[in-house]
Nucleic acid binder design. Structure first.
Lengths: 302, 302
DNA sequence: TCGATTGATACCATAATGGTATCGGCGCGA
DNA sequence: TCGCGCCGATACCATTATGGTATCAATCGA
């Protein structure tokens, strides 16, 4: 008993007429007659009580008709659902992201993905780099948005954007009138510095940049987060070197300057488990790349 | 997408291994591989992500597996149910019966049918002849147990039993010592008579029997039901001619005598609509005939 | 590095399915 | 009442689908 046979039988009962049923099925009438006969033989049950010209559906036939309809509906639904899930039109994707991404590419990615796949459920979880690596390996999150380097070899990644570093100075600072500075020009300034604990990567990069420029920065204040750094600089506590994300929020008393040294920008990457071949994931990384390519860091806003 | 393919896919997922799945399905491995490939092509979805040696079931594959199992279970259940209904092992049968049958064949029929088809629901409805005819034509009851004649030509019937008539006399009556009497010997006796309204058929038969014997019965008392007639005779109100059913219940002060005239016995028949080809019905009439053939009227109990 | 295991492929035989032509039987209308 | 038309069944043929055997390619473990 397969679904085709049930479709045939269902059509015959629905139409009450072999000829019309055959037409509706797109086959000829004789094969239809034969299939019904075969079905009856297989079940050992009379489904249609043949009168001389018309037939009458037996009680057993009626029962089979009901069940067949339910089965056919279920099969159709299953097929559609599987197809949707398989093509990534539906499903669920858990995304990890570090704290800076909501100010840069994350919104753009989410908006685009939602537009393209409105039936996919996105779950967003802020977590730090090492947690993301663990969760990616465990399969707790499907994709992570973070800053390299990442240690695990079981993970694959693609670079989305590269954030340049900007120099932040108070609005009343001597450099504030300029559009560009060098790192060396900041050598004597007190620094507002990303803390090693809160942003180890940026901390390390800024320290390295200063040392390359030939000085050890004098640190007036540590801060964990980008907007804290920005507000401290705006308050006149010192200068800072920061990823350009800082321009996303306007901060009174703060001026952003391009850095003439052109330090290597900070990449943000999408990361996933190497074995993960989910269509959702592929769609997500594709859209993430698209969103990233249309994202431009605002170098120097007012 | 048919059920066979789903069975195949289900087996592969369940076994996690093409070879073992093929064995469990009783086919060779290559056709199985091909069917899964075909299924994936049809759905346009990767169900199994092939690693180098092993495969991994994708999310879509897992969904299809769950749905497939449900569909296959449903199909199996449907097949079993239809088969049972079609072979008359299950279902529902509504039986009409006239008042006298519970004292004769009805219990035997029901007991036998229950034993043979324990899962068939029997509904028993006492109704009089003309109501049964109507309900049979309407399909409200499937089969009727009643006494001919029946008028409708749309009904078929089979005779189950023939109840002989007995003469009933009070125990202190002159005839009570005998085992046999003639109808004529009752000519001078007061009669307890089945009422025309309550039992028109028996009434008519008894009247006819008396007239054939050459007298018009003097009616001392009318009664509707067999046991009422019996109790009136037992109370000495008169004599009666009654179907032998009366011997089913012992009544003090009552004697039953065979009737030497051998009046035509009263048949009880099973009746059904001519077009009704239900297996349940056929089974019922077969068992009713069997039960009837082993039923013997107790001619003359103590 | 070799052998065993696993899924994929190639090729063939058979079974299943569908199409065309036609039949037998009944009902409707002239 | 006699066709004529409609309906489902049957006979026969072409095509497709399915399953089997032999074999391959790749990988994993000893």
């Amino acid at each position: 008993m397969d679904l085709r046979t049930l479709r045939y039988f269902s059509a015959v009962v629905r139409e009450g007429h072999f000829g019309r049923a055959a037409v509706s099925l797109g086959i000829a009438q004789p094969p239809l007659t034969r299939q019904i006969q075969k079905l009856e033989r297989e079940l050992g049950v009379v489904l249609l009580h043949r009168g001389q010209k018309k037939f009458e559906v037996t009680e057993a036939g009626l029962l089979l008709y009901e069940r067949a309809r339910r089965l056919l509906d279920g099969a159709e639904q299953a097929e559609a659902d599987v197809r949707r899930l398989g093509t990534g039109e539906t499903g669920r994707l858990v995304i990890g992201f570090v704290r800076s991404t909501p100010f840069t590419i994350l919104p753009g990615i989410v908006v685009r993905f939602r537009a393209a796949f409105p039936d996919v459920e996105l779950e967003l979880r802020e977590m730090r780099n090492p947690d993301q690596v663990k969760c990616l390996e465990n399969g707790i999150i499907d994709v992570g948005l973070l800053r390299p380097p990442i240690s695990s070899r079981a993970l694959q990644m693609v670079t989305l954007i590269r954030e340049p570093f900007l120099a932040l100075v108070p609005a009343d600072h001597a450099l504030a009138a300029r559009r560009t500075t060098t790192i060396r020009q900041l050598a004597a300034e007190p620094f507002v510095m990303y803390s090693r604990a809160g942003s180890p990567l940026i901390h390390a990069r800024v320290m390295e940049m200063c040392r390359r420029a030939g000085f050890e920065p004098r640190i007036a204040q540590y801060a964990d987060q980008i907007h804290t750094v920005a507000s401290f600089v705006g308050a006149g506590l010192g200068v800072a070197l920061s990823p350009s994300t800082v321009t996303s929020f306007s901060m009174p008393g703060l001026r952003c300057l391009a850095v003439a040294d052109k330090p290597a920008p900070l990449p943000v990457v999408a990361v996933w488990r190497t074995g993960n071949s989910s269509v959702l994931l592929r769609n997500f990384t594709r859209i993430a790349r698209e969103a990233a390519s249309s994202w431009q860091p605002q170098e120097l806003p007012g």
